[in-house]
Simulated assay, not measured.
Amino acid sequence: MPRWLPRAVVLTLALYACFQLGSWAFHQLIGLLINILIAFFLALAIEPAVSRMAARGVRRGLATFLVFLAVFVASVGFVVLLGSMLAGQIIEIIEDFPDYLDDVINSINTTFNTELSRLEIQDSLLRSDWLQRYVQNSASGVLDVSATVLGGLFRLLTIGLFAFYFAADGPRLRRALCSVLPPAKQSEVLRAWEIAVAKTGGYLYSRGLMALISGIAHYILFMILELDYAPALAVWVGLVSQFIPTIGTYLAGALPMLIAFTVNPWYALYVLGFVVIYQQFENYVLQPKLTSRTVDIHPAVAFGSVVAGTALLGAVGALIAIPAVATLQAFLGAYVKRYEVADDGTGGAAGAARGGGADPTSRAGSAPRPRLWRWPRLR
């Protein structure tokens, strides 16, 4: 047996054990890593506001605290306003539910010549087995719901704590990271950091602007239909449709449709039609113009990045996919060398020049055709 064989076997087993240990640790810490990633992008989003306040003489820690306080107050105010609106509408729906049920029963009796009554339906529902099982399952699931709520609050606290430290100690973190890198790499890291801040801030700026436009447009519709809580509904539609990826549009339109249905069933159809038409206007007119100026990413690339982010990290990946891809695209674009497009014989660049217009991919409009190298002829 060669001398190196036992040593190679031990080294292979040690590497395999390290791989298994690293894989186990990664799966155990995947939740914490995702929270840190969310906190990092949140810190990048508030970095411009914190930097402006710090440039005016405010201590960076205090500036970060003020920004977080403003976001917290706005979020709590929105939740309280929306909760009061939902509570009022739910109470109204519950009070009017017997009348709705009587109308449905009367229409069924008239259409199918039946003799149903509301009291018989209520007795059959109260004595049904599925209702008893549902009540039992709901009672046993209270602890699960409480644990989920507590876990969500702890996750929000973790994300907020890391985001606060990333934003407050941003310059110190960059210096600590660059101190272990050679000077050539330090400039690249700082450039990537600046691009990430610009793209993330631009993404949130564009989303906020589209939320404002969407809220104003839907507020006008709700005022025309004379719906209750029109300002709160407009804020709900604007924020949910823009900041919840993939399903945000459907969630945003469901609540106004429900409230409009309690006023007039035709109003729900009007709201649905307006939501669909405005979504098309936003997708094909508004969003391309805003994202091209702030994020500078193609709509197809944005859609693909959202799909890929959702497949990798779920809703979190869908939310941070666009600023991450925009940052990567801008960073690589600074180092990718581009060349003029030569005539390939199919009327591409030269055809455009002969047609009266310069090729947009060529700097001079028309470039001299390169001289081809040929094999020497044998004598």
Rank of each mutant, 00 (worst) to 15 (best):
L5Q: 13
R7E: 12
L11N: 09
Y16V: 13
C18W: 04
F19S: 09
A25K: 06
I30K: 14
L32M: 08
L33R: 03
I34V: 13
I38L: 11
I38Y: 00
P48T: 01
S51I: 00
M53A: 15
R56Y: 04
R56L: 14
G57N: 12
R59W: 02
L62F: 11
T64I: 08
T64S: 15
F68I: 09
L69Q: 10
F72S: 15
G77N: 02
V80W: 08
G83P: 06
S84E: 11
A87P: 05
Q89N: 11
I91M: 09
E92M: 12
E115I: 08
D129K: 13
W130I: 15
Q136P: 01
S140L: 12
G141C: 02
G141A: 13
V142P: 06
V149A: 14
V149S: 10
L150F: 05
L150T: 10
A163C: 12
Y165P: 04
A176L: 14
L177G: 09
L177Y: 05
V180S: 13
Q186E: 06
R191L: 12
A192T: 04
A192Y: 03
I195A: 03
A196F: 00
T200W: 05
S206P: 05
R207C: 07
L212I: 05
F222K: 02
I224L: 15
L225H: 04
P231G: 03
V235H: 01
G238Q: 00
F243L: 12
I247P: 09
G248Y: 00
L251F: 01
L255E: 04
P256N: 04
L258C: 05
I259L: 06
F261C: 11
V263C: 10
N264A: 14
L269W: 07
Q279N: 15
Q280G: 10
N283A: 15
L286S: 06
L290S: 04
T291D: 09
R293E: 09
V295A: 00
V295Y: 02
F303D: 07
G304I: 05
S305Y: 00
A308T: 11
A311C: 09
A318F: 05
I322G: 08
P323Q: 02
A324G: 11
A330M: 08
G333Q: 07
Y335S: 13
V336D: 01
R338M: 11
A352Y: 11
A358S: 15
D359Y: 10
T361D: 15
P368E: 02
W373S: 14
R377H: 09
R379S: 14
